[in-house]
């Protein structure tokens, strides 16, 4: 497969171009989309290529989310842009009480093919209301699927699967990764939801991660190599459904696990994953499962404090050394 280098933003835009050309029922709804192709340039070229199918909404997150539900139930495939994932709080009823439950409550009468696309994450000095990682809330809501990609190729393949999924899919992309570059296949492809990827093979410890934390693990793994610790990196990519098989395969090999995410630690996805690992793989473990996440405070504004609160490469190294007893 031939490849070229794209940013995460360009990978997303390319996927949308390809799928919107393929199917007229796909449309994009959100705030500030048309003038600049999205606040992060994530919809570059789409307003020109698909006039009328990328729609600027008033600042009405409740309405936007509800419109997604209503349109999905009546024959469309809405792609809802949530501007900043922090504003999901303004659409929680529509997402968690309506989108997640309507199919179930109606006894399976209807499909809700809907992507809720959410730029998330910290590190931009954007303070507490523009920096969160809220994926665990939605993992905790039966009826939703949750995807958190890291590399451009994952963004492209997973967004296509999300668009074609007949269920509401929460799709979180880290704001700091929009400009991140990586190889993306020239040919069209789809990455099935619920498939983790072993991004680096290793023998000594499994670094289980997703989203921006993948890059922390990548950096940590190369430092660990200097200490003769051979880390394996499992990028979960989809949190719900979760690819527990790939996680288990990795742990059966390394017998040690460190879970890394940018979201704050308490009640985070790491807690769920750690519980499942101890339940299903207890006898495989040679050390307790360690978790690395942000400290349990809102994200502070000032750089010195924000950097302190967020998980760092050093935190990953410390956890990896602890579970390998080095």
């Amino acid at each position: 497969m031939s490849e070229r280098i794209l940013t995460c933003s360009a990978a997303l835009a390319e996927a949308l171009h390809e799928e919107m050309r393929r199917d007229e029922s796909i449309f994009i709804l959100g705030e500030d989309l048309v003038a600049h192709g999205g606040v992060f340039g994530q919809f570059k070229g789409i307003p020109e290529a698909f006039p009328g199918r990328i729609i600027d909404s008033p600042i009405s997150e409740t309405g936007i989310a509800g419109c997604g539900v209503g349109a999905a139930m009546t024959g469309m495939r809405p792609f809802i842009d949530f501007h900043f994932s922090d504003f999901l709080t303004c659409g929680m009823d529509e997402l968690c009480n309506q989108a997640a439950k309507i199919r179930y409550m109606s006894g399976g009468q209807v499909k809700l093919p809907m992507v809720v696309w959410c730029p998330d994450g910290a590190g931009l000095r954007a303070a507490a209301q523009h920096s969160q990682s809220l994926e665990a809330w939605f993992v905790h809501t039966p009826g939703l699927k949750v995807v958190v990609p890291s590399e451009p190729a994952d963004v492209k393949g997973l967004i296509k699967a999300a668009i074609w999924d007949d269920n509401p899919v929460m799709f979180f992309q880290h704001k700091k990764l929009f400009a991140k570059e990586g190889p993306v296949p020239e040919e069209e492809y789809v990455i099935e939801l619920g498939r983790a990827a072993v991004k680096k093979e290793g023998r000594d410890v499994s670094l289980l991660c997703y989203g921006a934390a993948y890059y922390l693990c990548l950096e940590a793994a190369s430092t660990l190599r200097e200490d003769a610790i051979d880390a394996e990196i499992v990028d979960l990519r989809t949190l719900k459904p979760l690819d527990m098989d790939t996680v288990a395969r990795s742990i059966r090999k390394t017998h040690r696990a460190v879970i890394v995410h940018e979201a704050c630690l308490t009640g985070g996805f790491g807690a769920e994953l750690a519980a499942r690992i101890q339940d299903e793989l207890f006898d495989e473990l040679d050390a307790p499962v360690k978790r690395v996440g942000a400290k349990d405070v809102p994200i502070p504004f000032s750089p010195s404090m924000e950097d302190f609160v967020l998980p760092s490469v050093a935190d990953v190294l410390e956890a990896a050394r602890a579970v390998t007893y080095r």
């Binding site: 449309f27 409740t62 509800g66 419109c67």
Partner: peptide, 20 residues
């Protein structure tokens, strides 16, 4: 079951009608 829960949904259905 949510009071006013249907209104954003009906606007979405209306948008769908317009797009279709």
């Amino acid at each position: 079951g949510v009071v006013a829960g249907g209104l954003p949904i009906i606007t979405g259905a209306g948008l769908s009608i317009k797009l279709r």
